[in-house]
């Protein structure tokens, strides 16, 4: 009977009210977090939609003072640089993930995983400096190759991390079944394990592509920029993010309009990709999960 006295009714009510107020604040914080997303999408669409003309996608930039023109070269350039970067980063990243999950000892695996995380956290501008030193300086000029190298270093840890997480979800008994058929281990990994994980790996690859497509800092002094169509992959090349940056900080209204249009293209690309990925992943993370 005495014990009941410890929890007085008024304390109880106070505890309950505290709980409700705090939970309301938590919900409010979440709402505030989402406000910028809405604002960014809202304004980008509002300001950018007018600039999304046929000309924007098909024409070169016009010289200052002349209105019109587009970002065709930058859109194509982004495609080229990101494509080249993927050609390097995707196979290397998948192979590295295979090494971590299928071959490396536990200690080595966690060491590589750790360094991958560290790499993921490196400021991307530093990758630009690095690429400048190893490629731009020796070649004597800015180039699409240099931009691609910088972006591939951005992509690599993302590909490794997502692929590795998916490979670890492939059940061990799938590997055993393959080996028990007398299939060499490397063929089991390539033809059976990877195949079981292909959807998840694709997700990771697209994620890294989306990330790379929006990166600006590593391109500033690797791919540089180009007002015209690129004249070769060993030449400077325009990319969408760099073009947006250049136009946004310039003092011309017409350029601002185009920068907004470019931002809209970029954000649409990223959001569409994330929605698609979300749908694919939520449908099934792995085909083998029944």
């Amino acid at each position: 009977m005495e014990r009941r006295l410890i929890f007085s009714r008024s304390t109880d009510v106070r505890r309950r009210i505290t709980s409700i107020i705090t939970l309301a604040m938590v919900a409010l914080a979440t709402a505030i977090v989402l406000v910028p997303l809405i604002a960014v999408v809202w304004y980008t669409v509002g300001e950018g939609i007018a600039g999304l003309t046929w000309e924007f996608f098909t024409h070169l930039p016009t010289p200052v003072g002349e209105s019109g023109g587009g970002m065709a070269n930058a859109i194509v350039g982004s495609g080229i640089v990101v494509g080249l970067a993927s050609v390097v980063a995707v196979p290397v990243g998948i192979a590295a993930a295979i090494f971590i999950t299928e071959y490396a000892s536990a200690r080595l695996a966690s060491a590589i995983r750790f360094v991958t995380e560290i790499m993921l956290g490196l400021p991307s501008i530093l990758l630009g400096i690095f690429t400048y030193a190893v490629l731009v300086k020796p070649m004597g000029r800015f180039s699409a190759y240099a931009g691609a190298l910088a972006l591939s270093i951005v992509m690599l840890p993302i590909v490794i991390k997502t692929t590795e997480e998916i490979l670890r979800l492939v059940p061990q008994h799938i590997r055993e079944a393959g080996l028990a058929l007398g299939i060499p281990q490397w063929v089991v990994v390539l033809r059976i394990v990877l195949r079981a994980a292909v959807r998840g790996i694709l997700t990771g690859v697209l994620l890294s592509v989306a990330r790379a497509a929006g990166e600006t800092a590593p391109l500033l002094f690797t791919a540089l920029n180009n007002r015209f169509w690129h004249s070769g992959l060993d030449q400077p090349i325009a990319t969408l993010p760099v073009q947006i940056f250049t136009y946004a900080v310039a003092p011309y209204d017409d350029w601002h309009r185009q920068a907004w249009a470019g931002a809209l293209v970029l954000i649409a690309l990223v959001l569409v990709l994330s929605i698609v990925l979300r749908l694919v992943v939520s449908r099934t993370q792995l085909d083998s999960e029944q």
Binding site: L34, V40, E47, T216, W260
Partner: peptide, 22 residues
């Protein structure tokens, strides 16, 4: 909400930049 927060992380830096400026 998870998706929206992921989307917030996915918006490219330069897009935040132009939104920030203007």
């Amino acid at each position: 909400v998870s998706f929206l927060i992921e989307a917030l992380a996915a918006v490219p830096s330069v897009v935040y930049g132009i939104w920030g400026v203007f």
